[in-house]
Amino acid sequence: MSDVTAQTHASASGKDPVPNRIQARPVPRPGRIVAAVIVLVLAAMAANALITNDAFRWDVVWLYLRDIVVIRGVMWTLILTFGSMVVAIVLAVTLAVMRRSDNPVMRWVSWAYIWFFRGTPIYTQLIFWGLLSVLYPRLSLGIPFGPEFFSFRTDDVFTAFWLALIGLALNEAAYLAEIVRAGLTSVDPGQTEAAKALGMKDGKIMRRVVLPQAMRVIVPPTGNETISMLKTTSLVVALPFTYELMYATSAIGNRNFLPVPLLVIAALWYLLITSILMVGQHYLEQYYGRGFGTTTRRRGRGKGPAGGKQAAIAAAGTVNVDITKEVTP
């Protein structure tokens, strides 16, 4: 890429290599100007409607935007989002590998898990996690249907926070498992065959050969899922877990009889975090998508292509990147 720009600059500084360069008027596009005017007017109307309406109470929004309870809510929301995503990713890879296993029991367990957790609403699942200590006040470890080694009060171990994290993670894993499966399927079967022919065992083939190449397909939709999870955390009120952003703000709103400005605060925070995540996702996608379809040759530099391993995978075309395989809830 850099070579190309360098060349362009070189030719720009010297004589034009194209003596008969075309100087033509572009096609007139009056529609663009009309569209721009319409959009501008609509945007101005929307801004006006937001600012001039006193019900929004922008003074209250400003006052509570950095309230300690709100900030603490933001922290809990972030902890829940990233905590549950990490657990979900580990579980999802396991489920996706099980789904492709030769062992029919593994395949069936994975299928049933995905069927159940995708088939029931997350809100319902969270309510049930909240009821865990009611349904099973004491849990014990021991031989199934046999003696117990020790038992504990459910409430003592599974606090609302852990239940929230586990509840979100277990649900998310079902969706992510399908994304991971799509990624694994996208890798050229020839890769597995070549590894087999070298005498590599299945686990090694997965870890060393297939997964690294599947990442190209897995990472972008996983970023999408993370952004989705950020807002799904607001449902943990079903447990109830009451420290996260959505509940924290609406609690203040109810106490002050000012629900609207506090909802605006929650929305603004979600928007801000999403924006940051989107920037991160943009760079991740750029990293994993770089050099796709082009073979970058930089013989002079010796070491690797511009994008390193990922660009090498992209250029080799062993991964079939098909966006229709993306799975979104």
Partner: peptide, 8 residues
């Protein structure tokens, strides 16, 4: 079709 590992 060679089947070299493209990430190595």
């Amino acid at each position: 079709r060679f089947h070299l590992f493209p990430h190595m």
